[in-house]
Structure formats: C-alpha cells, structure tokens
Simulated assay, not measured.
Amino acid sequence: MRRSKMTAVMGLIVVAMLTLLPLAAAAAESKTIEGEVNDSYQIVASDGQVYEVTDTTEGNDLVENHIGEKVKVTGTVEQEGDTKVITITTFQVIQE
C-alpha cells in the first residue's frame, strides 16, 4: 500500500514538472529590441518599455561604454514582477 502511494506521488511530481517546463521556457524567450542605453543600467526601447540589463559581460560592456547611444540588442527577456529584465547575448550600436 505504501509503495503505491509513493508511486502515485512521484507520478504527480513528474506530471507537474512536464507541465511547468514549457511555461518556464516561454518566460525566458529570445527577443531583439532597439532603444537607448541610459545611466541606470537600463535600455529604454523605442516603444517606451524599460528593460533592466543583467550583470553579464555583454550587459556590462553595453551599459558602461554606450550610455546615451541607440542600440539593437538581442537576449532573453524575463518578467520579474513589474520589471522586464534582459540578459544580453549580442548588441550593436546604431549609427544615426
């Protein structure tokens, strides 16, 4: 009897993990945005949306060397409460 309960619980855990896994992947989708780098570790997109830049090599290079410049960035975007956070994988400065 105990063994069947344990098997049922394990089955439910596996089903829950398989159900939630696609949701986690959708939450961190790759996205390309254009906007301006500000001095608050953020990118303000053309549509006014603000993205916090994560502390990575690419992100640090962007926000330390390109403040006030228009850029095109690609990375994974996640929602943390009311804040959008981007982990930048690549970027390029857009010459105006």
Rank of each mutant, 00 (worst) to 15 (best):
M1P: 11
M1L: 14
M1Q: 10
S4K: 12
S4T: 13
S4I: 14
M6L: 12
A8L: 13
M10L: 15
M10N: 11
G11Q: 08
V14G: 03
A16D: 09
L18C: 13
T19E: 05
L21K: 10
P22V: 11
A24Q: 12
A24L: 14
A25D: 12
A26N: 13
A28K: 05
A28L: 08
A28G: 11
A28W: 00
K31M: 13
G35Q: 01
E36I: 10
N38F: 06
S40T: 08
Q42D: 01
V44E: 05
S46M: 10
D47G: 10
V53K: 01
V53C: 02
T54W: 00
D55M: 09
E58L: 09
E58H: 04
E58G: 01
E58F: 01
G59H: 00
N60E: 13
N60I: 13
D61K: 13
D61T: 13
D61C: 05
L62Y: 02
H66L: 00
H66F: 08
H66S: 04
I67D: 11
I67M: 11
G68L: 09
E69C: 06
K70A: 07
K72W: 04
V73N: 00
T76F: 06
V77Q: 03
V85I: 12
T87V: 09
I88V: 15
T89H: 07
T90Y: 11
F91L: 06
F91Y: 15
F91D: 01
F91K: 01
I94Y: 05
I94K: 12
I94V: 13
Q95Y: 10
